[in-house]
Simulated scan of single mutants.
Amino acid sequence: MTQSARLRWNGGAIVGGTRAGAVRGLRISAEHVLAESRKRVPIEEATLERSGTATLDEPSLKAAIAYDTPYAVRQHEELNYRHDAGRTAKYLEGPLAEQADTVRAIIAAQLRRALRG
């Protein structure tokens, strides 16, 4: 008795699905880090907190998180400023470093999901 099998390789769909998963993972990760950093942003009137955005450049697979006020950088870098409890300088740098494992897990989960079809 002879058995045969036929395999059809659809590499283009796999690459496309993987890229879509990476894009989705990056977007979710950037929003996650933004949410974590908003918990630490120095707050007076919440202008700085509300200015936070997460963006994604799909062609380069790069995500960015930014706060857009004239004083955002100074508030981030000035370690001697006094802040309310739980609010700190390095409000973006700290959460980004602390959430690195979570970011990797989110991206990996989205890649796995994309590969499952």
Rank of each mutant, 00 (worst) to 15 (best):
L96I: 14
S60E: 13
R104C: 09
E77W: 00
I28S: 11
G117I: 09
G16Q: 12
G86H: 03
Q110N: 14
Y67E: 02
G12P: 04
E77C: 01
A97L: 14
G94F: 09
R27A: 15
E93W: 06
T18I: 12
K62T: 15
V73W: 06
A85C: 00
T2A: 11
V33C: 03
K90P: 10
T88Q: 01
A54K: 03
Y67S: 03
H76Q: 08
R24A: 14
A46R: 14
R104A: 15
R19Y: 01
Y81Q: 10
R116E: 11
A109P: 00
Y91T: 03
R6A: 13
Y67I: 00
S29I: 09
E44L: 10
G12V: 08
I107V: 15
R112G: 06
T47K: 09
D57K: 04
E45L: 14
Q75N: 07
A22R: 03
A85G: 02
T47D: 13
D68A: 12
K62W: 12
P59Y: 08
A63P: 09
D84Y: 07
Y67H: 01
A66T: 15
V23P: 03
G21H: 02
A46L: 10
L34T: 09
M1C: 04
T18L: 15
K39S: 04
Q110K: 13
V33R: 05
T2V: 12
H32S: 13
G12C: 01
A5Y: 04
E58V: 11
A66N: 11
A85D: 05
T69A: 02
P59A: 09
A13E: 08
R6F: 15
G117S: 13
R50V: 00
R19I: 06
L61Q: 05
A105N: 08
Q99E: 15
K39D: 07
G86M: 06
H32C: 06
K39G: 06
A13R: 12
A13N: 02
A97P: 04
S51N: 06
I28E: 14
R19A: 08
E44A: 07
P59E: 07
L92Q: 00
G12S: 10
A114I: 09
G117W: 07
T102C: 03
A114D: 05
R116H: 10
G16S: 12
V33E: 04
A97W: 08
G25R: 04
K90T: 14
E44H: 07
P42T: 07
Q110A: 12
P70A: 06
A64L: 09
I28F: 05
G86K: 04
V103M: 07
R6S: 14
R112A: 11
Y81D: 02
T18P: 07
E36Q: 15
S60K: 14
A35T: 13
N80A: 01
T47C: 02
I65N: 10
I106V: 12
R8Y: 04
E49K: 08
H32Y: 15
K90A: 13
T102A: 12
R38K: 15
P95M: 03
A30G: 13
A22D: 03
G21D: 03
S37F: 04
A22V: 14
E58K: 01
E49G: 09
E58G: 02
R8D: 06
S60I: 08
N10L: 06
G16V: 04
R24F: 00
T69G: 01
R8W: 03
V15N: 02
I14D: 11
L7G: 05
R24N: 09
